[in-house]
Design a protein around this nucleic acid. Sequence first.
DNA 1: CTTTGTATTTGATCTGCGTCAAGGCTGCGG
DNA 2: CCGCAGCCTTGACGCAGATCAAATACAAAG
Lengths: 248, 248
Amino acid sequence: MLNEKFPTLNEGCSDCPIRHRAVCARCDADELRLLEEIKYYRNYEAGQTIVWSGDPMDFVGSVVSGIATLTQTMEDGRRQMVGLLLPSDFVGRPGRKAAAYDVVATTNLVMCCFRRKPFEDMMVRTPHIAQRLLEMTLDELDAAREWMLVLGRKTAREKIASLLAIIARRDVALNMARGSGRIVFDLPLTREAMADYLGLTLETVSRQISALKKEGVIELEGKRHVTVPDFDRLLDEAGDDSDGGVLS
Amino acid sequence: MLNEKFPTLNEGCSDCPIRHRAVCARCDADELRLLEEIKYYRNYEAGQTIVWSGDPMDFVGSVVSGIATLTQTMEDGRRQMVGLLLPSDFVGRPGRKAAAYDVVATTNLVMCCFRRKPFEDMMVRTPHIAQRLLEMTLDELDAAREWMLVLGRKTAREKIASLLAIIARRDVALNMARGSGRIVFDLPLTREAMADYLGLTLETVSRQISALKKEGVIELEGKRHVTVPDFDRLLDEAGDDSDGGVLS
DNA sequence: CTTTGTATTTGATCTGCGTCAAGGCTGCGG
DNA sequence: CCGCAGCCTTGACGCAGATCAAATACAAAG
């Protein structure tokens, strides 16, 4: 009924769009063959909850296309997004039976899933997978800590600018559309989801976006389509060190 | 001159106090011997900075005793603590040459250090180390995400209660002094450090601690010695789900 | 074309926490 | 014993962002 919404995928890993970034990035041909035997694809519609926090989770996997979010909820309903999952990001924790967070598809989503037990067994035998997963987890930890600074110390305006900068940067990396200085992208999140990510209310998000627009830091077509005429100006509003802090 | 301040350590790993919790937890006798060849101990005094963010870091290591903090600083001086390192926690990132955060010893500290390059080489050859490091990193990621909820959505009072609960819980686990319901511990952080951790000002920290004291949620002797007469009451103030959310 | 629902914007008002300022407590060096 | 330096507490006041409320935009359904 809705299969046209999702890209059709061949079974093979060799032409997988996330082949070189996902948890399987370091695997050789033999290892990929083993993975192919235990993997399967799964589609989710925009808005659909993939798992609820606390529910048993019998698989782990990689986001192939689309965007998902990790969210914590308090008893009284306060919500905080704690992760934004983009293509190639890993979902689930080997060795853990239950989900620790709500996982929600915010766009239509394709996941490459592995049943948990066979995957865990394979991880023991295949150091390439564990190595890559360690690297990815360390990157996520860095991202989480970066976000702690945003949540703890930045103003509402800086928070919005920080989020826009992150999304813009990702799109630049993906489309390689650098040079002009103008960056164009679509917001993959509603105002409410942005508020949940930033620790704000949706009203404050809306107001700050309006302010940034009025002052020419961003341009808007409709509610979601954003143009950033001057990325450095945006970084400035985000309160970030202007240079892109190269480490590694 | 100040060696009495630090516990004297035998060279051997076998009677190391963090033997079963650190990166080396899974290593067998042979692997430990290899580690012993590249390891050395280092002492830091309370208040001393171990590395500055951005500086080259030629070693990684484990906290043996004492407490250290990871902190990010913005150009204008706003600071956010992003990690609290307790005994057995790992410092540094294999594969990364420069520190990503300021690392500061808040108490006298003993670290078990490994020069970075030999350790990285060994990690490739010794899956036990990489496996354990992955597990520890996943735990830290969970902790960071838990903290994102605190920073983004909790009130000042809830933040303080959350921090006290975390420290209390750690001391319970360490001293196994359960049963009575009363928990007693010393705050290892100044008011300012607590503020940096919680995304608050030190004045707000002070006020909220006074308020919790006045209402009998905690008792104070001096500025640092805390008694929690009723842990569930404290959890309640922290806004946490009362049951200790058992996963794994 | 109208209805209905969801997402967003905008306004008015309230409040928790930051900011600024003034002491207090404790330990250490002279 | 005094003075000084760190650390902490307490008070007064203001503001950024929350809360409450209403209007608008837009798309899908009827």
